[in-house]
Write a protein that binds this DNA or RNA. Structure first.
Length: 787
DNA sequence: ATGCCTCGAGTTCA
DNA sequence: CTCGAGGCAT
């Protein structure tokens, strides 16, 4: 049949096939390329041309056969003559030790040698070679029967189509793992995302899905690789004595074997290998989910045999899974203190990364949309470097037909108010405010939290109960709670929940509990301005902003009435934050709650005069620029401020004065029009009043306002470690102290840092109190504690 | 406008 | 711990 083909052509084709196979082997198996890509392409093209001209030349092992044939109908079944094993799993050192001990006992031997190998996270397959030629490849299936995926496997470059060297058996079934290298996976997905193609969930699913493609041309585009790790059928060659030798033979025959395989002695050797791999795991170019220990002696393996379908002589030692699949039972909404509506996935409990995970946050609607998570979906959950579980992706193949895309509900599941997502914002908010039980509970919880009012014993659950039963509707109600009230509440809660007398706290314990709580509440009455402000839970006001406000304004009665342009004078407080504070205090309910709190004995121990720097910060120009009138720049604001003399006068300044101050006509017009608006006038009135008020206080700093360091003179010396000298000075000044440069007998105390010199000596001489840095820090945290 | 940088807010499980 | 947003410097 091929007689018509000249021997020369035939030889050339054979030579090309050899060269290409060799290049392939070097590149994909040995990782030592010997020819350039262009050269390789050239050889391929030449071979393709020859084969096109003489189709009879095409052999099953020709590299041109890798490209992928046209789709076949379906996969045919393949019976594995020697079943493909599954391994028992070990998850702890104990289980490994048991495994080794069992073998030692059965064989009556010690210090056994194991072939130790990484456990690739891919898909187990079997490759059949007859007379050195790849004839068939199959998936494992159930171990007995798999599917013929030869066409797909031909596209995997690291699988040789013909064995190399000599001495290979007449028939060989090599078993191993098809996997997708991480880099290839990333690259593939990146491309898929750009082109809108199918994004793979993870490398393992990528490998599995690829092999099950009916169209091998698709598989050819998936970057798969292969490692051999076991032998099935072998005919015509003597088996070596040890498994590790078998793997070496594989290498000689051109089958890729991981260079991470090794040999270990006894349990200790195995475990050492396990830890080594665990440490390397993250930097490996492919995913592994554990390691496998195989008794190295093949004769001994035969002796041990099987239990069911798993061999007694091998075990897989698994890493704690960092990724698991589970099902989304529901997607719920959590309402936070600020009303933020955060979707969370309720999961069928799954053990991942050492803990059982039942919830995973989905962050926001965008994230849900990005992942397209739907109720009923199977998802991949990860607990990576950090602790918090996250949904990585959806396994689309397993999506129930009826699953519908998830949408943020229009109404709050707790209070029924509208849920609104502002233009350009990522988070949606429940508009219920404090009428929403969820927000109220969270607000109360926040108020009582350690960094706020620090009331011990008020957990979130209990707070919810107090709210539900109507005992606490607002933060002020917390200070109404009495011993009897608490006990009564406890009783009612137990009744309602159907708690039996045995499980309910008995009278004495309940009394003790209530007493402790009352004491804790009582102790919390004395607090600092910063804590108090923080406790109020004003939007955007966290701990540090609260501190800044406290330090700069010093007094609650000031802060609670300040218009936002004045609040904005504080560093790090911008328009957004200032408006939020203004808005908070503009609600009469909030003002009322504060009045109530003060009435019920809240004492702010560290009120003091405003920071003198406010004087500069409150310059007219700052207030004017905060009006954000187009064209009214800082410079022009300053000019008109100087020309007019006071804020009040600016607002009433005639057109001419603006022009004299160098403000262009159109800007002046705009400003005057702006000032004429009703709400602007109201705001300006408040600003005018507030500026006067604040400035009065600043001037009055040895007047009635009493800071804890009022009238004290402090001297700083040495190097402070946790804060700069300037910061310390600022803080002390904000508390009313005068920070002087040298020690005299008028000095109240000296703060001495490291390497304090002459000033410390002089302080000792004069008998002036000396603080170390630690004491200063304690004081700065809670200045009310002592003066 | 644009890019740090810090602060606020939300989150899981034992 | 991480993300988003606000503040501020460039």
């Amino acid at each position: 049949m091929s007689a018509s083909i000249p021997a020369k052509v035939r030889d050339r084709a054979a030579r090309l096939r050899d060269q290409i196979a060799d290049a392939n082997h070097r590149y994909h198996v040995l990782d030592e390329p010997n020819i350039a890509d262009v050269e390789y392409d050239k050889l391929m093209r030449e071979l393709e041309a020859l084969e096109a001209e003489h189709p009879e030349l095409v052999t099953p092992d020709s590299p041109t056969q890798r490209a992928g044939a046209a789709p076949s109908g379906a996969f045919t079944e393949v019976h594995h003559e020697i079943p493909m094993l599954s391994l028992a799993n070990a998850f702890s050192d104990e289980e490994v030790a048991d495994f080794v001990r069992r073998i030692e006992k059965r064989l009556d031997a010690a210090d056994l040698e194991f072939s130790v190998e990484p456990k690739f996270d891919g898909l187990a397959i079997s490759l059949r070679y007859e007379d050195g030629i790849f004839v068939r490849g199959a998936t494992r299936g159930d171990g007995e029967t798999g599917e013929d995926v030869s066409a797909n496997l031909r596209t995997v470059k690291s699988i040789p189509l013909r064995l190399r060297g000599s001495g290979w058996p007449r028939v060989l079934e090599a078993r191993g793992e098809v996997y997708m290298p991480r880099a290839a996976f990333e690259k593939y997905n990146e491309h898929a995302r750009e082109t809108g193609g199918k994004v793979l969930v993870n490398p393992r699913n990528g490998a599995a899905g690829s092999l099950r493609q009916l169209d091998p041309r698709i598989t050819a585009r998936r970057p798969l690789a292969f490692y051999a790790y076991a032998v099935g059928v072998i005919e015509g060659v003597e088996l070596p004595a040890r498994h590790s030798e078998m793997l070496s033979r594989f290498r000689e025959w051109g089958l890729p074997v991981s260079n991470l395989v090794s040999v270990a002695i006894g349990v200790d050797g195995c475990l050492e290998y396990f830890r080594g791999m665990g440490a390397k795991r993250d930097v490996l170019p492919f995913d592994i989910d554990g390691v496998v220990y195989k008794l190295n002696d093949l004769a001994a393996q035969r002796e041990l045999g099987f239990v069911g379908r798993t061999p007694r002589w091998a075990i897989a030692h698994k890493f704690p899974a960092q990724e698991q699949q589970t099902r989304v039972e529901d997607i719920i909404i959590n309402i936070g203190r600020t009303g933020a509506a955060t979707p969370a996935a309720k999961l069928v409990p799954v053990f991942v990364g050492g803990v059982t995970v039942t919830n995973a946050t989905l962050h926001n609607a965008d994230q849900v949309a990005r992942l397209d998570v739907r109720i009923g979906d199977t998802v991949i959950v990860r607990r990576a470097g950090d602790v918090i579980p996250e949904v990585v992706s959806v396994v689309l193949d397993q999506r129930p037909v009826h699953a519908r895309p998830w949408k943020m509900p229009a109404h709050c599941p707790v209070c029924g108010s509208d849920i609104v997502r502002e233009e350009g914002e990522v988070v949606a908010h429940c508009t219920g405010g404090l009428t929403c039980a969820a927000q109220r509970t969270q607000a109360l919880f926040h108020f009582a939290s350690r960094r706020a009012m620090d009331i011990e014993g008020l957990g979130e659950r209990f707070m919810a109960e107090l709210g539900e039963l109507g005992y606490v509707k607002s933060i002020a109600d917390l200070y109404k709670l009495s011993l009897d009230g608490l006990l009564e509440m406890k009783r009612r809660a137990d009744e309602r929940d159907g708690t039996t007398p045995e499980t309910a706290k008995s009278g004495k314990i309940a009394t003790k509990w209530a007493q402790n709580l009352v004491t804790a509440i009582d102790q919390s009455r004395r607090t600092t301005l910063a804590r108090f402000l923080y406790a109020l839970g004003i939007q955007h006001v966290g701990e540090s902003t609260a501190k800044a406000l406290a330090q700069w304004f010093g007094r609650l009665d000031l802060i609670r009435h300040l218009p936002w342009p004045i609040l904005k004078a504080v560093p790090d407080v911008g328009g957004e934050v200032a408006r939020a504070i203004d808005h908070f205090f503009a609600q009469s309910g909030n003002q009322h709650a504060i009045d109530e709190l003060l009435k019920r004995g809240i004492v702010i121990g560290d009120e003091h005069a405003p920071n003198p720097k406010l004087r500069a910060a409150l310059a007219l120009e700052q207030v004017l620029t905060s009006m954000e009138i187009p064209g009214l720049t800082q410079k022009r604001s300053a000019q008109i401020a100087i020309a007019a003399g006071s804020l009040e006068k600016v607002t009433k300044a005639p057109q001419q004065l603006w022009l004299d101050a160098g403000v262009p006509t159109d800007v002046a017009e705009r400003a005057r029009a702006h000032f004429a608006q009703k709400d602007t006038q109201e705001l300006l009135r408040r600003c005018i009043r507030a500026m006067g008020e604040v400035l009065d206080c600043v001037e009055d700093d040895d007047g009635e306002s009493v800071g804890p360091l009022d009238g004290k003179t402090v001297v700083l010396t040495g190097t402070l470690t946790s804060l700069t000298r300037d910061e310390a000075k600022e803080k002390l000044e904000a508390l009313g102290a005068k920070v002087a440069g040298s020690v005299s007998k008028k000095t109240s105390f000296v703060v001495a840092g490291a390497e304090a010199g002459s000033k410390l000596d002089r302080a000792n001489e004069l008998g002036v109190e000396v603080w170390d840095e630690a004491r200063l820090l304690v004081f700065l945290r809670a200045p009310e504690a002592r003066k």
